[in-house]
Computed example of a mutant assay.
Amino acid sequence: MGHVTEQVGKTLLFDLDGTLVDSFPGIRESFLHTLTVMDWEIPPEERINRVPGPPMEQTLQDLGMSPEMAQEGLQIYLAHYGEVGWDMSTEFSGMRELLIRLKEQGYRLCTATSKGERFAERALRKFHMFDLFDFMGAAQENGPRREKSAVIRHVIDHVDLTAGDPGLDRVLMIGDRSHDIEGAAQFGIDCVAVTWGYGTPEEWAHARHTVTDAHELERIIHEWT
C-alpha cells in the first residue's frame, strides 16, 4: 500500500489512437472513402500513414482543400467512421493490463485524445478500458475543442489542475505523435513517446522519453518524479 500512497496526485494523460489502440485500419478506410466521395486525388501511402493524430479537417486542408471543403469532408469521414471504421481497431499488447496496474498503484488516469468523444468512448468500452479512467478528455466532433492542446486544457480544467500551476510537474503525457509532444509542452508537461504508434523518430526526438513496449513504459512511469 505504500506504493499507492506515493503515487497519489500523479496524473497520466494517455493518447488513444496509436497509443492504447491501433485504429489505423478504420481511419485509413474512412479517409480513403472520404477522398473518393469528394473525387479528390488519393495521396501516396507514405502520406496516408501519417493521417492518424491531427484533426481530420486539418489533414484535408493539408491536402489542398479549402476550410469549407475540409469541413464537408470531415462530416463524410465521421459518418463512415461511425458506421464502419471505428470497429476495425485492435488493442495494443499489454496496454489494458498496464492501465489496471497503474490504477491499482494510485495514479490518476485520463485520456487526452484528438478522437471525437463519441468514438473515443466506443473504443475504450470495446476494449474494457473506459472504467479504468478517472476522466475522458477527447475532442468535440462538432465544436471548438479539436486540437490536442485544447483537449489537454480541457482535462486540466476538469481534474483540479491549473495551467501554469506547479502541480503540472506531476502530470505526464503518453502519446505517439508530435501533436502529443507539442500539445503537452504548451503546458510545461513532459511527454513519453511510444514507438508502436504512428509517429516517426524525428517526432519522438522531442519527447522526454521514448519507449518501445508496455513494460518499458511502465518502468519510465515508475521512475518519473
Rank of each mutant, 00 (worst) to 15 (best):
L217K: 00
T162I: 01
F135L: 03
L99D: 06
E68T: 12
R50L: 15
F127D: 04
I152F: 02
V8N: 08
R108Y: 05
R177N: 07
T11I: 14
Y107W: 00
G175R: 01
V192K: 10
E68V: 15
E29H: 14
F130E: 12
D39E: 14
T162N: 03
I181L: 01
T36S: 15
P43H: 03
E223I: 10
H179Q: 04
P55C: 09
R101W: 08
C191A: 14
Q7R: 15
E216W: 02
V21F: 03
D22Q: 08
R219I: 13
D169R: 15
H215D: 15
A193S: 13
D62S: 14
L63V: 05
S93E: 15
G53Y: 08
L12P: 00
Q61A: 08
W224A: 05
W86D: 01
L102H: 01
A139L: 01
R122A: 09
V171K: 06
S114N: 14
E218M: 07
A214M: 05
G18V: 09
S23A: 10
A185D: 01
L172V: 11
T5Q: 07
F135G: 00
D160V: 03
G73S: 10
F119W: 00
W196D: 00
A112C: 10
W204Q: 12
H128K: 15
Q61I: 14
D176A: 13
F119I: 09
F127Q: 00
A205Y: 09
R219T: 15
T113R: 00
Q75C: 06
P25L: 10
D157S: 07
D87R: 14
M1W: 06
L16S: 04
T210C: 09
L98E: 10
Q71C: 12
S23K: 06
E91G: 06
P52L: 12
P201F: 04
T11H: 03
T162A: 05
A70K: 09
G26E: 02
D213N: 15
V194Y: 05
Q7C: 10
Q61L: 02
I100G: 08
R219W: 12
Y107R: 00
H158Y: 01
R96Q: 11
A185R: 11
D165R: 06
E46Q: 14
D87A: 15
D134M: 06
D131A: 13
H128A: 14
R101K: 15
A193T: 11
L124N: 07
E117C: 10
A163I: 09
T212I: 11
F92H: 12
M129N: 06
S30I: 12
L16Y: 02
T59P: 00
D134L: 04
I100L: 12
E117F: 09
G116Y: 04
P43S: 07
G94I: 10
P43C: 08
L74R: 15
A150F: 03
G183C: 08
L32D: 09
R219S: 14
T5K: 07
E83S: 13
T200H: 09
D62V: 12
V51L: 05
Y81K: 03
S93C: 12
D17F: 02
S30F: 07
D190C: 01
T19A: 01
G85R: 08
A193R: 07
T111M: 04
A214D: 05
S23I: 03
L161R: 02
E202G: 02
G26P: 06
L20P: 09
M65C: 04
W196V: 09
R170Y: 04
E45A: 13
G18H: 02
V84N: 13
F31C: 11
Q105M: 12
D180M: 12
W204D: 11
V8K: 14
G116D: 05
G18N: 09
